[in-house]
Structure formats: structure tokens, C-alpha cells
């Protein structure tokens, strides 16, 4: 079952930590967002493989945008 990881708020993508195809554990940091002078790590909510990574560093994400798909 694929899990879509979404942005919780409008933010800039500061760092992309994982790459497509990487194996991740529950709680691993996928990307780090930045909003209002705060760094916000986006975490995997289940173990699996990064099937899709839909953001690049420097992108702006809106609340609810899919950041990655873990399967």
C-alpha cells in the first residue's frame, strides 16, 4: 500500500534528504521544509521504498501537496 506524504503548510523546500529508490524506515527524514524561519522535517510514516519524489530544493509547496510516495 503506497503512502503519500504531504506538506502540512506552505513552505520552501530547503533540503531533499532522500532519493527515489532509497529504502526508508518509519520516522526517517525525507525532506526538510522551511517556513517562517523554522526548519520542518517531513518524515516517512511507514517503512518502504521512495517510489516518487515530487519536489526539488528551492520549490515552494502548498498545504496538502504531495512531497513523496513511499511504497
Amino acid at each position: 500500500m503506497a503512502e503519500e506524504v504531504r506538506a502540512e503548510m506552505v513552505a520552501n523546500v530547503w533540503k531533499v534528504v532522500v532519493a527515489q529508490g532509497d529504502s526508508v524506515a518509519d520516522g526517517d527524514t525525507l525532506v526538510i521544509l522551511e517556513s517562517m524561519k523554522m526548519e520542518i522535517p517531513v518524515l516517512a510514516e511507514s517503512a518502504g521504498t521512495v517510489q516518487e519524489l515530487r519536489v526539488n530544493e528551492g520549490d515552494v509547496v502548498q498545504e496538502g501537496d504531495v512531497i513523496a510516495v513511499i511504497g
Binding site: 502540512e8 503548510m9 506552505v10 513552505a11 517556513s35 517562517m36 523554522m38 520542518i40 498545504e63
Partner: peptide, 13 residues
């Protein structure tokens, strides 16, 4: 602040 009152995460809008 523009932030949620529980976890204090930013909430621009």
C-alpha cells in the same frame, strides 16, 4: 503568531 496553537508549527496563509 501565525502558527497552530498545539504544536506551534508555522501557518502562513
Amino acid at each position: 503568531y501565525a502558527e497552530d496553537p498545539k504544536r506551534f508549527l508555522p501557518s502562513p496563509g
